[in-house]
Amino acid sequence: MINKVWTFLIIIGIFFSVITNRIEMLNNIIFDSAKISFDMITRIFPVMALWLGIMKIAQVSGLLNKISFFLEPFFKKLFPEIPKGHESLSYISANFISNAFGLGNASTPFGIKAMKSLNELNKDKKTASRSMITFIILNTSGLTIVPTTLISLRMLHNSKSPASISFICLLVTFLATVFGLTLDRLFSKRYKE
């Protein structure tokens, strides 16, 4: 699937760049992409190391397990395949909490750890398991409590109440999460081969 999307984006992109006469820019963009992704990695890397370090302390001390204990009743319903007390639950909790508080850069390393841990439970290592897809939906529809970048951008453009959209955003993400998880249930039942 990702393979198809990737190919589609490149072919359509090059084709229309030629039609709209943006070939010169296209040359720059191809090489810039390499630079942009490297810059991005160099920005993510140190923050990731920092959070993984801090999280390790929380994990070894058992704090992470304590947090996931509170979320367990909720996650048990969402991820029935995960055995009780499996470490992936604590990563999922950490990812969920940091997402909700707008700590985007912290939620990514937790999310990747969660995926790695979910793949250990996975029978076919190359195919997404149901728990993984549920986790992805939980992430892409991500509950947001404080959208910080957005508020500052609104402030910049002289909004009278820059933070006023926070509540609607929260409500929309909540409804979208419920919608996504419900569909996920239906899809996964259908997909059983």
Partner: peptide, 18 residues
């Protein structure tokens, strides 16, 4: 990012659903 980092190739209905 998430599927790539663990080497998942087949993502089933994940893209459509999200």
């Amino acid at each position: 990012l998430y599927f790539g980092s663990v080497g998942i190739k087949k993502i089933k209905y994940a893209l459509w659903l999200s």
